[in-house]
Design a protein around this nucleic acid. Structure first.
Lengths: 219, 219
DNA sequence: AATATTTTTTAGGTTTGTCTAAATTTTAAT
DNA sequence: ATTAAAATTTAGACAAACCTAAAAAATATT
């Protein structure tokens, strides 16, 4: 089936909201997509006709199996382009999202296959989020944020959920990136802040807010 | 200024038609863009308001200086993407046009600059057409087709004006590509066909139709 | 339980880009 | 110079995707 750019944007946003809540509400989607609730309702009807949505009036909605597959394909395209932009064109982390947002709607299947091959089948995008394979399969690593890691443990940064310029600035300052080894020295229960140690640098303190946005995995 | 995808497609098509005729007609543009003359008239009015078109009712039209710059920028994007698709992703010649047609509308200026750098500032696209630089400057090599080359001369293939699968098939068969050295043995005035020699292969005959579509330059 | 508030949907309108059919202008032919 | 034909434009409609304002349903409050 074929989807317009608008439809694809709605599908992708519903998919993202579904990661957090079981069923998605009209208002939350409207906010996510920066549009009016009435516009959302219009689109929901269209997507229901196209049979990719489970939707009951006033009761919320979610993508069905077909819809999920479509969404994963869009996510795949988006993340492959982000990887391309950073590793091949030398873009910074925080500049790629908007561009990938446009590139992801270029619909050629062959293009994405060849891009994947060219990039050597990357597993995650520059923020550490997994790239679905061509069948829509995603390896989901258990996501553990720094705020939850036990003291004294050494872990590796796997992804960052906040992709703003400000976050990038902070991470660059502490030499933190995807793959960086980090030792969690101590957590202060007073404010949730965490002392960490990166390579041979002096230990530093991350606020709880930061610690909650940096995800890691073991060894 | 910002242009919609439709507007960009019109601008690009007007630019292409202008290469052949001084002023463009409504009908020819309608045919080029596969739409109705009435739709063309509608769009002409819009482009006139945006001040990129010289247009007088019933008298034909052409891009003004601003319009030409916009067009050259679109052409630049298109050709850089074509180059990318062929040299980096391994696409064949005849498959890239449709995809580049979509990619060219991704509007980030920085993206195109970085892509240009990544590709090492290519001068021509895979069909041999020149890629305008970021200021919209195009080096225009005098275009000479095989049908016009004097006998006994040795020349180098610089571009191919027909980009169909059929043409690609024929050129592959004779080991002809951009940069190939070709000696023009003899032209037969009876039907305009031309005998050529490529590398150490046996001489072969090109029909006039083919000879008119392959452009070359000296030494 | 009745009322107030919030959320969601409907009704009706706008813009962009398309269309058909009819009117107008230009060009060609007698 | 008329008339016929072709090209172009206008008029009026339509679909997609959005909007505002009002109605309806669900949730929260007293």
């Amino acid at each position: 089936m074929n989807f317009s750019i608008s439809e694809e944007n709605y599908i992708k946003s519903i998919y993202h909201l579904q990661q957090q809540t079981e069923t998605v509400t009209t208002n939350s989607l409207a906010q996510e997509i920066q549009t009016r609730p009435a516009s959302v309702t219009d689109m929901l009807k269209k997507l229901q006709v196209k049979k990719i949505l489970e939707y009951e009036k006033y009761k919320g909605f979610r993508l069905n199996a077909t819809g999920n597959k479509v969404a994963l394909n869009i996510v795949r395209r988006h993340r492959l382009w982000e990887y391309f932009l950073v590793t091949k064109l030398g873009f910074e982390w925080d500049k790629v999202h908007a561009i990938a947002e446009e590139l992801e709607h270029v619909s050629s299947f062959e293009l994405i296959q060849k891009l994947d091959t060219f990039l050597n089948y990357p597993q995650t995008d520059p923020h550490g989020d997994p790239i679905p394979d061509k069948h829509g399969k995603v390896r989901n690593i258990k996501q553990l944020c720094i705020a939850e890691v036990p003291e004294k443990k050494t872990v590796i940064v796997s992804s960052v959920s906040n992709q703003s310029t400000e976050m990038l600035e902070l991470m660059k300052h502490y030499n933190l990136g995807i793959g960086t080894e980090v030792k969690i020295n101590k957590r202060f229960s007073f404010d949730g802040s965490v002392e960490i140690k990166v390579a041979k640098q002096a230990p530093c303190i991350l606020s709880e807010q930061v610690a909650k946005n940096i995800f890691v995995h073991h060894d």
